[in-house]
Amino acid sequence: MAEIAIKKKRPKNLDLPSIRLPLPGILSILHRISGAVLFLLLPVLLWLFQQSLASPETYAAAKAVTSNFLVKFILFGLIWLYMHHFCAGIRYLLLDLHKGIDLESARLSSWIVFGVSITLAVIVSAKVLL
């Protein structure tokens, strides 16, 4: 029975640019991209964490590195990606519990995720980077 169901023909559209991604879709792909980017930059972040804790000298050196405007901008971007991953992740946990699975609330919760994550990123960056 199950094998028949798997072999059933499904519609396919491989012309991806012809699809306008809805907001929950943008949230979803950003969740994946943010995860991958944070993974790739893990060694840099661990290094920065280590420098900030090892000694007063390395703390000062880490402070000097992060006082650069470009570094600040990149760190702000990373904080936002983390906050997006965090908020979108909580939304997925709620979806797992069948909370807000109808179209309207799924769209609304996507707006909330973008709003809250950007707000959190600005607040945390102001606190940590300024």
């Binding site: 893990l42 060694p43 661990l46 964490f49 804790l53 090892a54």
Partner: peptide, 13 residues
């Protein structure tokens, strides 16, 4: 490797 690194960072404190 990162897990070992994290131990090193935290247990030095």
């Amino acid at each position: 490797g990162y897990a070992g690194w994290a131990v090193k960072i935290l247990w030095r404190l």
